[in-house]
Design a binder for these strands. Structure first.
Length: 563
DNA sequence: TTGCAGTCAATATC
DNA sequence: GATATTGACTGCAA
């Protein structure tokens, strides 16, 4: 009877009590194919045990994670490292362990690397299956993630960074041991965490792992142990390789990076990494400003002109868009937490603020997934969502920003047909850039090899009749300012649709109606980070709206522009 | 097909 | 040596 009732009239999650959620978790586990194997025979565990594990799990996450309190709750010490060897039928049990045991042997993960033969501390613990790669642990963590309440990603990363630096623990060690990620990914993640709402299930995983790790009272110790063991192993290896007169490969320092049994032979097969020259990047950025979503034709042209593969150009645009978004996320969060520092700045408040702010008003603007719908509602109405979401938000700052964006979007909608000219800008740019540029094979210039001085960027005055879009492009790199300026400044301004550029452009500004909307004189001297952030946010937003408008305009005629 | 998220891993920078 | 950056790749979704 209960089952029937539950199946036919399930209550929403938020309305369920802890106990009421249990059946659903069980169902979820069952659907995942895990519970079925375990729950009945479960290693002699009565079902109650499983139940208990589930409950504990929730407790753990709820207590430690939601609040993002700076003092980690330790009531449920748990380990993110379900890397203890276990059969697939143990996954549920592993959940229990996860929560209840103070960190099962972290050493077993051993960075996800195959242990050195003859490396005692490591090899006897766990032959393979590092934490992140193990199917079972992955399943478990997925379940954890699925059950996890909203986490304050920014707060989590902040704390993780603190702990790591305080204890002199490296990202690599942490990443490979705790998160199952490489150093680069960890760095990226810690520096630019996305808000919870923006994360996919997979993307949430590292944050859940981090949170669990933070909750573990012995987290540092364990990592330290790992470090020590690693060092030991390294020394041992080094020793033996020296005695073998087998010079130690530099790449294997610290860890055995071998993925499989046959590490070596690939060497030459690897294609060299493409390194874009600064000029190429500048050109691409200008192109991006003109059109963040270039057509295949444009991509082709760009590729030809820059002497790059089209795939490189495509990748570059993908990466750039995505990274811009990330930048905006983090900046917004930071700005938000700074400006609101005075009022109600409890971490949880901040958390929700951050989450909210990114949920609708979005900074991103490029893709705004309204959480209610889950992923991507990818089209114009998002803008309205932004506004309405913002309106319902209690956090004034963000709402205001979103409101502004919405307002601008309205203007934008009115002039949507103008996107045409915007569209054309790219071609012009391409032509402009073409001028006087050597076409020689300049393949992915290896660092230092590209002959600097190639006039890759369009000289600001090169095209007398250039339209506004072109001038906007060239204005991106302010005259007299080196296009090679350090990333920080160089990167951000161009990322935003020609923010500063347009107004300075001489002559009749054909694209004013559009570009004027997002022209925020950067140099205005207002150093307010908050302002800048808002501007950037708006700019990105508009950028995206433009794209969607273009798209929509090319498909259907009468769209109800609701912003 | 296109765009995105997430990630790796080579390389650059600190 | 640790960390940051970034081109490329995979898998997924619309």
């Amino acid at each position: 009877g209960s089952v029937s009732d539950m199946l036919s009239r399930p209550k929403p999650w938020s309305k369920l009590t802890q106990k009421g959620r249990e059946p659903f978790i069980r169902m979820q586990l069952w659907l995942n194919g895990e519970l079925g194997q375990c729950v009945l025979p479960v290693q002699g565990q009565p079902p109650g045990q499983v139940l208990h594990s589930v409950t504990s799990l929730q407790d753990s996450l709820q207590q430690g994670c939601v609040s993002s309190d700076s003092t980690p709750k330790t009531s449920a010490s748990c380990s993110p490292a379900p890397e203890s060897p276990m059969s697939s039928s143990e996954s549920v049990k592993s959940l229990t362990e996860l929560v209840q045991q103070p960190c099962p042997a972290i050493e077993t993960s051993k960075d996800g690397k195959v242990p050195e033969p003859g490396d005692p501390p490591i090899s006897d613990s766990q032959p393979t299956t590092p934490l992140p790669l193990s199917g079972h642990s992955a399943l478990s963590i997925q379940e954890l993630v699925a059950m996890s309440p909203e986490l304050d990603t920014y707060g989590i990363t902040k704390r993780v960074k603190e702990v790591l630096t305080d204890n002199n623990l490296g990202q690599r060690l942490f990443g490979e041991t705790i998160l199952g990620l490489t150093q680069g990914s960890v760095s990226d993640l810690l520096a630019r965490p996305k808000p919870w709402h923006k994360l996919s299930l997979k993307g949430r995983e590292p944050f859940v792992r981090m949170q669990l790790w933070l909750n573990d009272p012995n987290n540092v110790e364990k990592l330290m142990d790992m470090k020590r063991m690693e060092k030991k192993a390294y020394m041992k290896r080094r020793h033996s390789s020296v005695s073998d007169s087998q010079p130690c490969e530099p790449s294997s320092v610290g860890i055995d990076y071998n993925q499989g049994a046959s590490p070596q032979p690939q060497h030459q097969l690897k294609k060299p990494r493409v390194v874009l020259a600064p000029e190429e990047k500048e050109a691409l950025k200008r192109a991006y400003q003109q059109k963040p979503y270039p057509s295949p034709k444009t991509i082709e042209e760009l590729a030809t002109q820059l002497n790059l593969k089209t795939s490189t150009v495509i990748n570059w645009f993908h990466n750039y868009r995505s990274r811009i978004r990330r930048e905006l996320f983090i900046e917004e969060i930071q700005a938000g937490s700074q400006s609101q520092a005075g009022a109600s700045d409890s971490p949880s408040a901040r958390s929700s603020r951050a989450a909210h702010s990114s949920e609708g008003d979005s900074c991103d603007g490029v893709d705004t997934e309204g959480p209610p719908e889950g992923k991507t509602s990818a089209s114009v109405p998002e803008a309205s969502e932004e506004a309405s979401n913002a309106a319902t938000k209690s956090q004034g700052g963000q709402a205001e920003a979103a409101g502004e964006a919405g307002g601008e979007a309205q203007q934008l909608a009115k002039s949507s047909e103008k996107t045409e000219s915007f569209h054309l800008g790219m071609e012009t740019l391409a032509e402009t850039e073409d001028e006087g540029r050597p076409r020689g094979p300049r393949r992915s210039s290896p660092p230092g090899s590209h002959s600097s001085g190639e006039p890759l960027e369009a000289p600001p005055n090169s095209a007398p009749e250039e339209d506004a879009s072109t001038s906007a492009a060239s204005a991106t790199v302010p005259a007299g300012e080196s296009p090679y300026k350090p990333k920080e400044s160089a990167e951000k301004s161009p990322s935003l649709p020609s923010t500063s550029s347009t107004p300075s452009g001489p002559g009749p500004q054909k694209t004013n109606s559009l570009q004027g909307l997002f022209s925020f004189p950067e140099a205005a001297g207002s150093k307010s980070t908050r302002d800048n952030t808002l501007r950037k946010k708006k700019a990105a937003n508009l950028n995206s709206i433009i794209h969607r408008l273009e798209k929509a305009a090319s498909r259907e005629e009468p769209v109800e522009w609701e912003f």
